[in-house]
């Protein structure tokens, strides 16, 4: 733990990440800052999915549903009680939901593939459910669920001591800093004793169990933490756009999160962030130039990632760099 905190890589990540977070507002226009905020939010979702899937080894294909749950929990609670309670609810509700689903799945020892499909199915059915709530009957306090129209005018985040809600710049800082904290937190987590057990469970759960660690309990903890992280990202998303809609439960959004992680490099620490940023930027750009239907682009990217770069871009680039270094060394000697 101590060695990780003082390791050069960790300090470098801290410094570079901090520099990006604090320097960006100085150089960027408000519009770009607005877009960068959502990229930071997507990076948060990617880090949480990677935490559950890449590090915990849990095939959570429907991870994005916790993002949607967090967004809705924030919207409903913030409309009724204010944004502080909203953020708490956005962490607590997905976490609780994950504990229930995870308890049933992990303690029942459902196989990996079954779990993936079940989590995707939960997402699908939530999508259908939320879409069917346009009736005024589905009103919680002052918040109408609004069905396929979603919930408009979600309140922005406001610190309890401040007179004004967060502006564009402060919102960017909050999201980027949280993404950085997520990244560094996951980095520390895999080096900590509990994180090492998680990795052991991922690699071989029978062996971990024979050594006295309960894989069911460890999986449940990782799944719940990951859900809380996704939920917070969802809350930021709802506050950012002042809107949350059922599309956050849709299959294509779930697929996007999976592609970010897969494309960037599952299980690596920085890969999912790179994946989230590059793929979100790419799909935003595609939407602007209208060259290709986004579903076609995402589908192709998905297939290519699985077939051609199964480990993701970051490990692939690392291998290329390594090879170049070896070639250069040979040339030098």
């Amino acid at each position: 733990m101590k060695t990780e905190l003082t390791s050069p890589a960790f300090i470098a990540a801290l410094v570079i990440g901090g520099a990006i977070v604090f320097a960006a507002p100085l150089f960027l226009e408000t519009y770009d800052l607005f877009n960068f905020t959502v990229f930071a939010i997507m990076a948060m979702l990617a880090i949480s999915l990677n935490f559950v899937w890449g590090i915990g080894g849990i095939l959570s294909l429907g991870q994005a549903l916790f993002f949607g749950l967090g967004g809705y929990a924030y919207a409903i609670t913030a409309i009724n009680l204010g944004s502080g309670w909203g953020l708490l609810a956005a962490i607590a509700v997905p976490c609780l939901f994950a504990l229930i689903v995870g308890y049933v799945a992990f303690y029942g020892r459902i196989s990996d593939v079954y779990f993936g499909v079940v989590s995707l199915t939960i997402s699908l059915i939530l999508y259908n459910f939320v879409n069917s709530t346009s009736d005024a009957f589905y009103t919680i306090g002052a918040a109408r669920l609004g069905g396929y129209n979603g919930i408009p005018s979600v309140p922005p985040i406001q610190a309890p001591w401040a007179a004004q809600p967060l502006g564009f710049e402060a919102m960017y800082m909050l999201c980027a800093l949280t993404a950085l904290v997520f990244y560094l937190g996951v980095r520390l987590f895999v080096r900590a004793p509990f994180g090492r057990v998680i990795v052991a469970v991922r690699e071989n759960d029978l062996r971990a169990e024979l050594l006295g660690y309960d894989p069911r309990y460890h999986r449940l903890v990782v799944f719940a933490i990951g859900a809380a992280m996704s939920g917070l990202a969802g809350a930021f998303f709802a506050a950012w756009g002042a809107f949350i809609g059922p599309d956050t439960f849709s299959v294509s959004f779930a697929a996007q999160a999976i592609i970010w992680v897969l494309f960037g490099g599952l299980g690596t620490l920085i890969g999912p962030v790179v994946g989230a940023l590059s793929v979100s930027w790419f799909t935003t750009w595609l939407g602007e130039v209208r060259l290709l239907d986004p579903n076609i682009a995402l589908g192709l990217l998905f297939i290519i990632s699985v077939l051609l770069v199964p480990n993701g871009m970051v490990p692939a680039l690392r291998r290329v760099l390594e090879r170049l270094r070896i070639v250069k060394e040979r040339a030098d000697t």
Partner: peptide, 25 residues
């Protein structure tokens, strides 16, 4: 991808998105 169940699931998911995109276009 036979024998690599997770990769197969992911690849068929890609096909799913691709088919939705192609039919909508």
């Amino acid at each position: 991808l036979y024998g690599r169940t997770v990769e197969t699931i992911l690849a068929t998911w890609g096909v799913s998105l691709l088919l939705i995109g192609v039919t909508s276009v």
